[in-house]
Design a protein around this nucleic acid. Sequence first.
DNA 1: GATACTATGTAGCGACTGCTACAAGGAATC
DNA 2: GATTCCTTGTAGCAGTCGCTACATAGTATC
Lengths: 190, 190
Amino acid sequence: MSIRDEQREAVIERLAEHLLEHGLARTSLRQLAAAAGVSDRMLLYYFTDKAEVLDAVMARVAGELSVRLAQAIPDGAPLPPAELIRRAAAFTTRPEMRRFMRLWVEVVAAAARGEAPFPAIVAQVMAGFRHWVDARLDLPQGADREGTAAAIIAVIDGLALVDICSEDEIASRMAAALSCLLADQPGPRD
Amino acid sequence: MSIRDEQREAVIERLAEHLLEHGLARTSLRQLAAAAGVSDRMLLYYFTDKAEVLDAVMARVAGELSVRLAQAIPDGAPLPPAELIRRAAAFTTRPEMRRFMRLWVEVVAAAARGEAPFPAIVAQVMAGFRHWVDARLDLPQGADREGTAAAIIAVIDGLALVDICSEDEIASRMAAALSCLLADQPGPRD
DNA sequence: GATACTATGTAGCGACTGCTACAAGGAATC
DNA sequence: GATTCCTTGTAGCAGTCGCTACATAGTATC
């Protein structure tokens, strides 16, 4: 592997950490270069342009998220939707996962704005989410698997969205309340 | 009212429409000025700086959203959470409401990035949402009202987030599937 | 040793950003 | 008629943006 390729890999690794830490807030070429410990000139030597940088870094981040999701909830035994939501919610609101979800919300917004290369990234990651849910979802025949999968993703992403603009304390209560809403036996009653 | 104040109002009105149409994609001072039909020089005559422009415009948009939410689901008869979610979801995924929700997601992301004046705007709008839910939520005593309200907002916002990065067709299926998940009698079974 | 390719620094381009200094026209007031 | 204030245009500032031209040092190849 050439020096260039080695540096490329190292840069991707460092920038993945940078994006998870700061979101899309500091993503000008010069800021990315500084975070990666190289000059902006060299960043554009390792990558053809800024879009390729973000593409590569986001692919790395998505890969890591994918691994963690697979580890947290294996695809062996399919779960009923309420239980799947409950576990996925518990996992994605864990402190170390919140920066993934925050970045994800920012990326979706950037895609909504039409900002390259985020629309393509969102399409890929979203497909990954759908596949992840589909492989873990136990649903009676005749039910709308795609619709249900989308709804489950929506609930998880919604928790993340509210989470990032609220005080820390609300997240667990929100998850608990959601759990009650989904249960066949609804929450603490008199 | 001085010419300046009249123009200010007219500019806010036009920019509210602009933001709902294009999100935060075209919000440089010059782009905002063009959309409002004035020069950038005059925009900064009517407002002290860009943050004040966005503040005023977002307040207008939030006000309009608030009116529509109040009209769509009056606060007379409190609803159980599942029903409230169902109605709110049906309303916010209506075609004419989607641009509100898209803008909302973008604003939350901008706030997450720390970009002024969005954190303050998000806090205000979020408080409005919480109040709206609280005034319409029928919940047994002893239940966590705040947590449940946050969860309801999360579900609605999640639908919006998935909605803006999916094909049109999925939205209604997602809402239907969610309805099944929340029902005491879960969806079409065999 | 000459040549070609890889790797890196310096410097800067043109476009855009938020914002402002300055001047001037017009209306109102003294 | 002179002065002052409200309104508006012109021009441009300093900074950042993504990106690139150019030079150079080192290394590999012939």
